[in-house]
Design a protein around this nucleic acid. Structure first.
Lengths: 213, 213, 213, 213
DNA sequence: GATGAATGAGAGTTCATTCAT
DNA sequence: AATGAATGAACTCTCATTCAT
């Protein structure tokens, strides 16, 4: 039996340990790991997981929330340092944004699962709360963006961000292939068909931002 | 026991029957129906499904292929009748495109599942073939588009369509909520947070197409 | 894989096999066996059990129904052959009745569980249906009894049977001890405290029937 | 953290608190509450429960003992005030007895659980001790009863009481339906099948006592 | 070609109890 | 004495797929 997590910090740590295990296994397997596996990876018992999370889905929702929090807090300073005007800002933004996305390798895969799997087994209230927080975060970020670019109202800045977000998610899903399939592509020399996520996202954001003003 | 399907047409028909049932049930339940249910809905036995499809996932991949075929064949004539220049073409395109999407109520939900669920249990070859076909179709359509708009090369036209497609998929997932949760939203008076798919897609396509040229 | 049960008889047989295993294990362990154990005992797979029963509880409800059917059908002829008057009938009835109960060693233990455990996890409709059937069977039997004893109306005969049934169930629970505890009783020489089910039920039925008229 | 219970009285009080919570929750839910819930209701921790009781089952056995103590001590004076002869005593006894039972709403539900659930996880010694106490109490009460009614020997008075007790337990289980199912019964208009506990017990006791002498 | 009975791995969750603090 | 974090066995049920008929 591992040492009891008694202090608030120890509990936070333990929760974080579970999340870290869940994240590691999710990356490793490219699929939602079983609760038992998360527990084992953490070195604790299955039942203990349920002291920290109400359900398996909550674990991954929490992971997603972590990813979003990280992304948004990194995005905030980034957004205020973009060159004027908006059409010139897209490219530097895209580069730094792509960098951030690479640091959150679970964000987009989890997001794809959210709408397909997690949402089926998550209490409606929690799904809603999550989506609301996301919307709020986008609005907040939109307000920041609007403050920097006189050509943008807060509402239209939020909208621009929503579209950028949609583009990210959509392009990820279009361009992404399971690792095993990627190997196949290379063997068959079908590389030309394979679009590159970074290239496409950069181009798409540029067009989107340029056309938006 | 239904009569054996011996002729090639009879087999094609039977396959189509399974697909129709799968589609109907998928719409009805907003989730992948069980194979047993598809069989029952068709009036045939569970084992029979496996004479026409290698796995459950293949059924829904076939459904997706049907949807795409329909969409692309409707898109082709549409694309040649757009007003010049490209920036003026986005809005009328968006309207007709949205119309087409409404006629394929399974397309976007299935697409969202493709990258999250279906791809897990699909033979790599088939997944790849499907994605390749999709890419080819986009290229073909891009060539048509480029033929109409002198400002677009075939390559950039394909790219524009890819981005439009990504935008569609991404915005669908951002704005979509399970029916049950939508009810909750209305009760709680949180409507203002809820974005409308059609509105956003129109706006996003306009900006994207305008900025692209 | 065991041979498929295709004909109706084969299915009935298979269902009976599961019930037999369930009964055997229940007697053996004096507690509800797990579904997995029933399946194993039958030599079939866990999932197969659920082709024949909707839930674990249904299995034991079915067992109880079997026991009751057997008991009531044996009781019917018995009841018409009792000596007159009612007060003289109780003793011979008790003896034969006890005989029947001994042949259904699961009846009373299952009945004790019905009101404590099964009823918690059984769909309300089914629990109700079962209790109704039981009540009907008692009424039918009451009618037979009334036909033989002029001093009894059908209603009072049913009531008499209800009381006899209650007495059976209650005395069983008062006098019954788990096998392990019985051993303890004998070792400690506390036999005098231990009431005998058969003795008490006979005495109680005699008093009850005598006083009823 | 509540103050430590150091004095013997404080400990007794704490034990009583747990019992009171257990009783309240059992009545509320019509099912055995979880240990965690009992602790929470008492305002103490889960582990603390195990300083006062060896197991969950012991809690409810103690509750049952309380109920029996209360019942028997109320029964004792009652029994000496019954009219002569025995056949005339049954009805007034039944009425007062039913009154007492109503004041112990946990007695019969717990008793039904005793033989089905509790006894599984109770140390054999304790189960035996409990049953012995109960038998002794019945004997004591039987002696009182015999002192009042010249037609009863102490042994036969005990037996009469045992039968009355069995009748109570059995009729309770026959007539009792979970609250949810009762609603169903009323909706379906199947009231005629539903027997009333008080009516039946009164009738059964009358017959039993009348026929006993 | 059609059937549908059989399969059985697999998963999430609960909760009585223990024991380090 | 009190705590409450950790435990982990136990359990039911689903459903895609197989294959004997």
């Amino acid at each position: 039996m591992k040492q009891n997590a008694i202090t608030a910090e120890a509990k936070t740590q333990r929760r974080a340990d579970f999340l870290a295990s869940a994240r590691r296994l999710f990356i490793q397997r490219q699929a939602l790991p079983a609760v038992a596996d998360i527990a084992q990876d953490t070195g604790l018992a299955k039942g203990t997981v349920y002291r920290y999370f109400q359900s398996k889905e909550q674990i991954f929702l929490a992971l997603l929330a972590e990813d979003f929090t990280g992304l948004f807090s990194a995005l905030e300073p980034l957004i205020t340092q973009l060159p004027q005007p908006l059409s010139e800002a897209a490219e530097p933004f895209a580069q730094r944004y792509l960098n951030l996305l690479q640091q959150s390798p679970t964000l987009l895969p989890l997001l794809a699962l959210l709408n397909a799997v997690l949402e089926q087994n998550l209490p409606q209230q929690q799904l809603l709360a999550f989506k609301q927080q996301l919307a709020n975060a986008l609005d907040t970020l939109g307000a920041r963006l609007a403050a920097c670019f006189s050509e943008l109202s807060p509402a239209s800045a939020s909208q621009l961000l929503l579209h950028s977000y949609a583009l990210t998610l959509g392009l990820y899903q279009c361009t992404h292939l399971p690792t095993a399939v990627q190997t196949l592509v290379q063997q068959a020399g079908m590389m030309q068909l394979q679009r590159d996520f970074a290239t496409e996202l950069t181009a798409a954001l540029k067009a989107s931002w340029r056309g938006f003003s």
